[in-house]
Structures are given as structure tokens and as C-alpha cells.
Design a protein around this nucleic acid. Structure first.
Length: 297
DNA sequence: GTCCAGGTCATCG
DNA sequence: CGATGACATGGA
């Protein structure tokens, strides 16, 4: 039994620009972008379900090959909504960007693009660790190997779809093998297990972060894990919660973009970056995401 | 060969 | 405290 759902996005919304932002690497393993659609495996009530998304106007069409319980349907809509940041009204953001001479081009270049999130907090944190200090193409290769070895796999329409490993599974990874044969550094492996342990113990969870009162306490909880620094914590908060204040300080791509646009004079001066973001209140994360994507498109 | 990538931690002085 | 080195590897 097939299921089809429609999810409305707050306009302006451009599904193809979102797909373009998703299509970062041929080594991406957690979803596949093919002919205007994106396919991925989504966990709903402990069941791994293949899902296809396509765009139609301001809506995302969600399809799965099987029928869903009402609760699964709700979970699926929430997942896709958070993945595409569907509820955010971008009009105030564009008004702000267009009033800024050095940023105005972002509005026309990327109109309708939304922050492509990572709804699963554990996955977001692990991805931030994998991406630390190496180039993105290498990071994608490492993630692919980890997921192929330890993730969940399901074949649909002759596509191999994978889901990121659970925290429990991550605790079982073979560090010697991944270090000796899959090019992982020992520190990354240790950090991945630290995060997994924090989730298994319940010290960190999506739900727990939601109960914390402010951005600073969420950041403090995440950085209490060895391996999660300010950059990783803010990256994950941005990708998993859409937190506007989550600026990934120290990010080379971000400082590069700000420097290139003449918005800061000194790449190492974090105060200058803070001063710039004071001019984008409430839209810090969107500004970062747009700057990243403006580099590669 | 050198430098640096969507950094972080341990170990100094 | 701030500075420095290690970490893994590939591409410019």
C-alpha cells in the first residue's frame, strides 16, 4: 500500500534550490538526489521506511511504498518539515539581506533556499565530528564507510538506501579496523563513541535539549562531551534545531566568505565576526547557510 | 614538498 | 591563561 502526503512550505520556497544544496558530494550516502527527487530511509516507530520527495510549487510531495500508522505519518511530516525547515517564513530574512549592500546578491542567487537540516541530533553531532579539520569530500568518504559498515540498509527501486547507525550500534564500532583500514583518526573514533555514550546514557537527547531554557545551556551541554567543541556544537544546533544564534565560529568556509565579501578584515578576529552578525539578528544561521551555499553555486 | 581543509584536545610555558 | 603540536588524508 502506497502512501502519499503533501507538506506545505512557507513561501518563498524553491525545491530545486534545496536539492541543489543537498547535492554536495557523490559520496553522500544518507540520501540520493535523482532527477528532481530525493530518496532516503527514515526511521518511523523503529521501522526503516524508504521515502521519496519531489517538489510542486510550495509543496513537498512525500511518497512511501507502504502504508503508515497515523503516528508514523505525523513523525514523517515532522521529519521532512525539519529537514527542509518548512515552517520558516523567509520574507523578513530577504528584506534584511537586501538592505545589506554586500549581501544583497544572496537574495536573488538563492531565493527560496531553506536551511537543509539534519533532523536527527545524533547524526548531526557525528557528522560534525567526522567533518572536523578535513576537506568535505574526504569527510563524505569517511561517513560513507562508517554507514556502509554499521548503518541500516534497504534496497528500493534498485537503490541502496542507508540510515545512520544508532548510538547503540556506534558503541560497537571496531576502532582498530576503522583506523588501520578506513582512514579514520583515532581521535575521531573516540569522539564518536563519546557522543554515542552520551545518547545511550540519556545525558544528551533531542528531548532534553528542548527542555533547556536558552542557547547557551544547550551549547554548554554539548561541549561537555570530549570531541564537541564550539564549532561542532553550534553546527549541530544549527542543523538539528535551526537555532538562529548557532554561528559555527572558527568555520573556515564562513570566515573565508565573510573575508571575500569584505565584511571582515581579519579572518582570525572573532569579535569582527560577532559584530557582523549583530547586523543579522534572528537570521544568523540562515546567513551562514546562504554564505556557504553561495561559495559553491 | 608545502599548505590547508566546514576543529579539538592535551600539553606545555 | 594563550600558544603549540598531533591527528589522517587528499587536493591545490
Amino acid at each position: 500500500m502506497k502512501t502519499q502526503l503533501n507538506l506545505a512550505c512557507s513561501p518563498p520556497f524553491d525545491f530545486n534550490k534545496c536539492l541543489n544544496a543537498l547535492y554536495r558530494s557523490t559520496d553522500e550516502i544518507l540520501y540520493q538526489v535523482i532527477d528532481g527527487s530525493v530518496f532516503r530511509l527514515i526511521k518511523l516507530e523503529n521501522e526503516y521506511i524508504p521515502v521519496a520527495l519531489t517538489g510542486r510549487g510550495n509543496e513537498i510531495i512525500i511518497e512511501t511504498p507502504q502504508s503508515l500508522t497515523p503516528h508514523q505519518t505525523e513523525q514523517l511530516k515532522q521529519y521532512v518539515g525539519r529537514w527542509f525547515d518548512a515552517d520558516r517564513d523567509l520574507k523578513p530574512f530577504y528584506a534584511l539581506v537586501e538592505s545589506h549592500p554586500k549581501l544583497a546578491h544572496l537574495s536573488s542567487q538563492l531565493h527560496g533556499l531553506r536551511i537543509m537540516g539534519i533532523p536527527d541530533l545524533f547524526e548531526a553531532l557525528c557528522w560534525s565530528i567526522i567533518g572536523q579539520q578535513i576537506n568535505l569530500s574526504f569527510a563524505h568518504k569517511l561517513k560513507r564507510r562508517l554507514v556502509e559498515l554499521y548503518g541500516e540498509k534497504l534496497t528500493w527501486k534498485e537503490m541502496d538506501l542507508y540510515h545512520f547507525p544508532s548510538p547503540e550500534k556506534m558503541l560497537t564500532i571496531d576502532e582498530e579496523y576503522l583506523h588501520n583500514h578506513q582512514q579514520f583518526s583515532r581521535s575521531k573514533l573516540k569522539y564518536l563513541k563519546n557522543v554515542a555514550q552520551a545518547f545511550v546514557s540519556g545525558n544528551i537527547s533531542h528531548q532534553r535539549l528542548l527542555t533547556l531554557p536558552d542557547f547557551e545551556s544547550k551549547q554548554a551541554l554539548l561541549t561537555s562531551v570530549k570531541g564537541i567543541g564550539v564549532w561542532s556544537a553550534n553546527y549541530a544546533l544549527m542543523k538539528s534545531f535551526g537555532a538562529p544564534k548557532a554561528i559555527p565560529f572558527g568555520d573556515t568556509g564562513l570566515t573565508q566568505a565573510l573575508f571575500n565579501l569584505g565584511l571582515i578584515d581579519d579572518r582570525k578576529n572573532e569579535d569582527a565576526i560577532r559584530a557582523f552578525f549583530k547586523t543579522m539578528p534572528g537570521w544568523e544561521a540562515y546567513t551562514v547557510f546562504y554564505l556557504w551555499n553561495s561559495l559553491s553555486s
